[in-house]
Amino acid sequence: MISNSMTLSLLNFSYLAFGSLALAMFSHFRGAFDRSPSPAQSRLLYWFGWGVLAVSYYIGILYQGFAYGSILFTGIISLAGLLVILTLSYRAHHLPHFMAGSGVLGTLLLLFA
């Protein structure tokens, strides 16, 4: 049975990934940082987001098998996506901070729990 800390860790990573994908877009980057991203930054954020998402999916399947892992991952990214959207709507400037926090928290949960 997948542990709750593993689920939380994947949730954190998905939040980081979706936040990154959001920031890759011009309007949302401006909303968070008050300046436009350079094309290189934009691309970096974009691929980083997809990379973290892929790695999270892989970890999920590794620990829980293909069927259950895929289902769990789909649920996790729905929730993570929702949280990113809420952050962008209500606290856009805090998004990078939350992302950093979730990266740290996710790693800790993955390693130690």
Partner: peptide, 29 residues
Amino acid sequence: KDFFSFRRNKGGRSWLDAHNISSVLALPY
């Protein structure tokens, strides 16, 4: 392009965004 957009306080546009978000985020489901 609109995946993360949620324009609040904009009447019909906000409802449309909310509709898009709730459909798209859980679309596989």
